[in-house]
Amino acid sequence: MNEITPLPEMEIVDRTRSWVRENFLYMRTDWKLGGDDPMLGSGVIDSVGVIELVEFLQRTFGIDIADEEITETNLDSLNAVGRFVHQKCNARSGAERRPRQVA
């Protein structure tokens, strides 16, 4: 059985930063997007953009994000995204490592 290794948090942050730059900051190449910079409050991402971000995270990192998880705490900065996705990946790989119950 293959062991699923969660991506390091930094790699999640880097891949998300690249995607945000390509899709939301393509017109502002001089914009310095720091790890803790708010993406909603600063106008980088609007409410439609959040939908795109959620879809990107689900597609790229193979996670499911519930409506109630779409919060500023989880998604408003690159570092927040990194922590949130990393936890989700960890939880998923933990669940997949757990032995199956045999009836």
Binding site: L40, S47, D67, I70, T71
Partner: peptide
């Protein structure tokens, strides 16, 4: 609809 147009983000858009 569901998703980002509900909850914290949606309210945060207006309140900020």
């Amino acid at each position: 609809g569901a998703g980002a147009r509900r909850g914290d983000f949606w309210a945060g858009y207006f309140l900020s």
